[in-house]
Amino acid sequence: MQKSITYRAYFLLLLLVLTVCFLVNISLGSVSIPLEETLNAVMGKSTEVDSWSYIIWNYRIPKAFTAILVGSGLALSGLLMQTLFRNPLAGPFVLGISSGASLGAALLILGSSIFSGFFAFTMVNDISLALAASIGSFLVLLAVMVVASKVKDTMALLIIGLMFGSITTAVVSVLSYFSTAEKLQQYIYWSFGSIGNLSWNQLLLLLTIIAIGIIMSIFSIKSLNALLLGESYAKSLGVNMKRSRYTIIIATGLLAGGVTAFAGPIAFIGLAVPHLTRQIFNTTDHKVLVPAVLIYGAILMLICDTIAQMPNSANVLPINAITSIIGAPVVIWLLIRKRKMIF
């Protein structure tokens, strides 16, 4: 009982931090708008300069929401993978899921210029790009699953994930070599990761994908907890392993694939946030971890985005670089502090 009250207080605090991060995020940008005016715009009141309200509603708020969805989605997918593969190193990147998405995107963007005849019917727009990236990540995830059912050794699985990554990189470089400069630039921009270009409609689509992923994860909480003991024990506790495994895999595919499709490959959030959350909440119970990683992921992503947009300057840094710069030291710090990575 005592514990659940502490958790509730934690969650309230986190939601407060999230709100503050959200407001700070939308008040900072290339155009400097005072916090007070930002609040006015959010509340729907008129602002001192008319364009401010337009900037906030059509540019900054969609971007902040994208950051929240991206952060939450990646963090949750990381948590699911770490538990499913019983491996603290698992994450959308390490197991090649993001590589799969990149391959899907590369085939569509770069392939359309090379195999123009074959791909003539495809249109490179955001929807088809999202679809291609999702299919790519899903296929890699499926391949990893097949391998995982044959290879019991998780180290081998990680190496296989890295190999998938190398293959993807290789295929992408072959495609780049033959494609036009314009298409290449389009792909490279996608691979930098970006959360600033989503319209309200696209945001709605991403929200739907992430929401389905979250609902599937919530229904898997019980099996995820049982999986902490290992598959044999989970089975002896009455968990339908086959069904749970597929639910978790599909949820991961939707979360990681959906995010990568819309925002490009974004590193480290998926790996770092679950570890950070476990340390802070000091629990392994997924009833606490699932909501906690969602909020932490969102907060971290908002902070990264705030830094990336370099307040008061016209430059925007690639978000992917910022998440790595922040995420990698976090993982290193955790390792040094604990001397081992337990999950």
Binding site: K222, N225, L228, L229, Y233, L237, I342
Partner: peptide, 26 residues
């Protein structure tokens, strides 16, 4: 076989034994 996560507390681990009887979220 060793349990997958050694990060579980004793109470959490024993509580998992009640899974067959708990509701959908445990």
């Amino acid at each position: 076989e060793p349990i997958a996560s050694k990060n579980l507390t004793v109470l959490e681990l024993i509580s998992l034994g009640r899974q067959p009887y708990t509701n959908w979220i445990g």
